[in-house]
Lab assay of single mutants.
Amino acid sequence: MEVRTIKVFTTVDNINLHTQVVDMSMTYGQQFGPTYLDGADVTKIKPHNSHEGKTFYVLPNDDTLRVEAFEYYHTTDPSFLGRYMSALNHTKKWKYPQVNGLTSIKWADNNCYLATALLTLQQIELKFNPPALQDAYYRARAGEAANFCALILAYCNKTVGELGDVRETMSYLFQHANLDSCKRVLNVVCKTCGQQQTTLKGVEAVMYMGTLSYEQFKKGVQIPCTCGKQATKYLVQQESPFVMMSAPPAQYELKHGTFTCASEYTGNYQCGHYKHITSKETLYCIDGALLTKSSEYKGPITDVFYKENSYTTTIK
């Protein structure tokens, strides 16, 4: 009895394709271990004539594949690729409408935090270190965002349907971005203890939790000093293409032309909904596939993004 075979390709990165001759009487799992086709788990399936010449994702289970996976995804987590594939199996079914010149995501599976993050990423200057993220990001900007969303979920250790947080998501993504040249110098002034300067680099240099107003941050924000008295913390120097200011959701007025974009969060910790506000020729609110415009805006804002380049204080 002759062994019926077909020729397929296996890959971990969709760049390096490895030619395989597979036995049609055995499952993919018996031949390769966990195997995925377009995100779908085909591990328990036997090869079919229609699979001839198709590319299958496999887990990096030998040295060659491990090197290829690390170079593309910059992670050695053995569960990463499987999590990416199972997320992709959902995100490829989502709709990605162009809204006001940006790629958004039609609401499904509690994905409003991903839509808000995706919209924000198209408006701030950011370059990702893992080629996987950078490639998928370019495709997302062009309207094909399924891979990018699935990668975000995998890097953030999230599953489809789980509630997510924009600030946490951005923080994970910033860790995989090139923020080497970003720098922030802060000064804390206390009447009792004097003053202390701190220099922050990388992710810490672009994120701040405690106030939404970048102007206020430049002037000074009140913080408790270690001595128990009130101290003032203010920005001395900022070198970065953008800054992200966050605070627990509270009524906040966004003035046209003073910011790049913002995240609105309605609801409580267990259950809520994100919308995205962007400042173009007027203010726009993007909620999944829905767009509304207004000249002014007041609502429960939790993150505001500002364009920056270089700032030095005039406070002496």
Rank of each mutant, 00 (worst) to 15 (best):
T120I: 14
P300T: 14
M209V: 15
D62I: 06
G33A: 05
H48G: 14
K298N: 13
V12Y: 07
Y28F: 15
P131G: 06
G143F: 01
S213K: 03
T116L: 06
K183P: 01
L114K: 02
Q31I: 14
N147G: 10
G202L: 01
V185D: 04
F148P: 02
T103H: 06
A142Y: 11
A205V: 01
K293A: 14
N110L: 04
A140H: 05
L235S: 01
V236T: 06
Q195T: 15
L121A: 10
K298G: 07
S246T: 00
K233R: 14
H18D: 07
G101Y: 04
W94R: 04
E71T: 09
D109Q: 13
T232Y: 09
E264R: 01
S294L: 15
V8T: 08
P78N: 10
E68A: 06
L65S: 11
M207A: 07
Y297K: 03
L212P: 02
K92C: 08
Q123M: 05
I6F: 13
N147A: 10
P241E: 07
G194W: 02
Y84F: 10
V185G: 01
R141P: 04
Y265K: 00
F259H: 01
F128L: 06
L291T: 15
L151R: 04
A145H: 04
S295W: 10
A150G: 05
E281N: 08
F259T: 02
L283D: 00
T313R: 14
L290C: 14
K233I: 13
K183T: 14
L65H: 08
Q237I: 09
F217Y: 06
A87E: 07
Q122T: 04
A289G: 11
R66E: 12
Y96L: 04
R141S: 10
F56R: 03
K219E: 09
C271Q: 11
K44Y: 11
E253L: 08
P60F: 06
A69S: 10
Q251F: 14
E125C: 06
D63N: 08
Q216M: 10
L235E: 01
M170T: 03
G29Y: 10
K127Y: 08
V42S: 08
M24N: 15
G33P: 07
D180V: 07
C227A: 01
K92R: 14
N14W: 08
F70E: 11
V206C: 09
T232A: 05
E144G: 07
L235A: 01
L121Y: 03
K307F: 09
E2L: 10
S86Y: 08
I152R: 02
G299V: 04
N178P: 04
M245F: 15
M85H: 09
H176K: 08
K218V: 06
F242E: 01
G161E: 04
T226V: 14
K106T: 14
C227Q: 02
Q122G: 04
N111H: 05
F56L: 11
K201A: 08
P47W: 03
T43H: 14
C149P: 03
N49F: 13
F217D: 01
G143V: 02
C112M: 03
I124F: 06
S171C: 15
K218A: 06
C227S: 01
V203M: 10
Q98S: 08
E215W: 06
P60D: 09
V304G: 00
V42K: 08
S181E: 15
V206I: 10
N187A: 12
Y73A: 04
R167L: 03
H176Q: 11
V243S: 01
W107T: 02
A40D: 15
E253Y: 09
A87N: 15
A154Q: 04
H276P: 01
A117P: 03
L88E: 06
S213C: 08
L114M: 08
F174A: 04
Y208C: 09
I315P: 15
G161W: 04
I15C: 10
K54P: 05
Y28K: 05
T91P: 04
Q175N: 11
L200F: 12
H256L: 14
I286A: 01
C112R: 04
V304Q: 00
R141N: 08
K92A: 09
E239I: 13
S213R: 03
D109A: 06
F259Q: 01
T75L: 07
Y96H: 05
K183H: 09
A247P: 00
C182G: 07
F259R: 00
T75F: 03
G33F: 04
R184S: 15
G228K: 04
I6P: 07
R139M: 14
L17M: 11
G194T: 02
F56G: 05
F174I: 01
L153I: 07
T116S: 09
L254C: 00
M24G: 11
S310D: 15
Y138D: 14
V304A: 00
C156I: 08
G29I: 04
G210S: 02
Q123G: 05
V166L: 08
P224C: 11
T313N: 15
Y265E: 00
A250S: 12
T278L: 09
L163S: 11
M170G: 01
N61A: 12
D13L: 04
V42D: 05
T11E: 06
G161D: 03
A108N: 06
I301Q: 00
D23E: 12
S171A: 13
D287N: 03
Q216R: 09
E308D: 08
R66V: 13
Y234A: 06
N178F: 04
N111M: 03
K275F: 00
Y138R: 14
S279D: 14
G288I: 00
A250R: 10
Q230M: 14
V185Y: 03
A142E: 15
V67D: 13
P131I: 03
Y234Q: 08
G202R: 05
Y274A: 06
E296F: 15
S50Q: 14
V21F: 15
T55I: 12
Q175L: 08
K316V: 15
K183N: 07
V12E: 07
V243L: 09
R4G: 13
T292A: 10
A154Y: 00
T258V: 06
F259L: 01
Q196F: 13
C285Q: 12
D165M: 07
Q123P: 03
N187G: 09
A247Q: 06
Q134K: 12
Q251K: 10
V3K: 13
T302R: 00
C156Y: 03
C193I: 03
A87S: 08
K316I: 14
E168D: 04
S246Y: 06
E215C: 05
T198R: 13
T10L: 15
H48Q: 15
T120V: 13
K54Q: 14
T302S: 08
S295K: 15
Y72M: 10
A177R: 02
Y284F: 11
L179I: 04
V160R: 05
E2A: 12
N309P: 15
S263K: 00
S213H: 05
N129I: 08
L163D: 04
E2D: 14
C182Q: 00
